[in-house]
Design a protein around this nucleic acid. Structure first.
Lengths: 138, 138
DNA sequence: CAAATTTTTGCAACATTGTTGCGTTTCCCT
DNA sequence: AGGGAAACGCAACAATGTTGCAAAAATTTG
């Protein structure tokens, strides 16, 4: 798995640094999405807050992670699947936020249903966030 | 319209104060959603920042407005339609964020399509945010 | 492999956003 | 109009996010 983080970074033409490896491995090992705050709590003593911001920023740009807006104003980040290229995200899957455990997960197999917009509107991206109780909290 | 603001406040059993009337009338007159920042810019000299936070908070609780999470970490607030009762929102319509003008609007006539979740997940709320170009920016 | 160059990091300082406590003002009810 | 409750404004603080710059690390080049 350690090697995998390196590969991903190399693939996206990013310098391989400790912070990037560490943060990326958090995503690779964990199941759900992480907020800046989550990451800071897990690696906060090791890396500067600013570094985490910049790392997430560049991961976003390079298509390594995508962001998920949530109601409580905390942006969540989650790994992209392989289809995501630099700057072009194709994460048209549904996101799920559990009201019990607070975790946010990507439902990779659930695609966002089509929606018909009124005349004059054109869509370039659709985000769907379902909240409720996840399977682990039942 | 001024009277309407008073009526809504009375209906929800809120004291009628200048700040609440003013903020509510912003929503009644405007078309789209407003963020805290938008409101602060429009009435900021008149009312304290804290008052705006508290007013939005109580409008949310009383079902006068609902909140719309957006990708740039700025919560938008928009008027609920009448069906929304205190604490119980029924705003199952699609939200649209225009990438050109930045406005967020409620597409009241577009209901969020149903989505089938994996086993074990149960949903209590679904949020759908479409971004693209709105009809005024075409 | 070591030097040169580029990139990234950490620090400091600052800006913005959101929260809390408390005394004063305003609103509501009779 | 007066008494009690609710809301406001202020101040202070906490959390979150941004920017510039020198030091450190990574990558490239000879």
């Amino acid at each position: 798995m350690e090697k995998k983080a390196d590969d991903i970074l190399k693939e996206r033409q990013l310098s391989i640094t400790d912070s990037r490896k560490k943060i990326l491995s958090l995503f690779l090992h964990g199941t759900g999405a992480l907020s800046h705050n989550d990451i800071e709590k897990k690696v906060g003593e090791r890396f500067d807050r600013v570094t985490i911001y910049r790392t997430l920023q560049i991961f976003l740009e390079k298509g390594i992670v995508h962001s998920i807006p949530t109601a409580d104003n905390s942006i969540q980040y989650a790994l992209c699947r392989n289809e995501c290229g630099s700057g072009h995200h194709h994460d048209n899957h549904v996101h799920f936020v559990c009201k019990h455990c607070g975790n946010t997960v990507c439902l990779e197999d659930v695609t966002v249903p089509a929606v018909k917009l009124p005349k004059g509107f054109s869509s370039s991206q659709v985000e769907m966030i379902v909240s409720g109780i996840c399977k682990d909290c039942r």
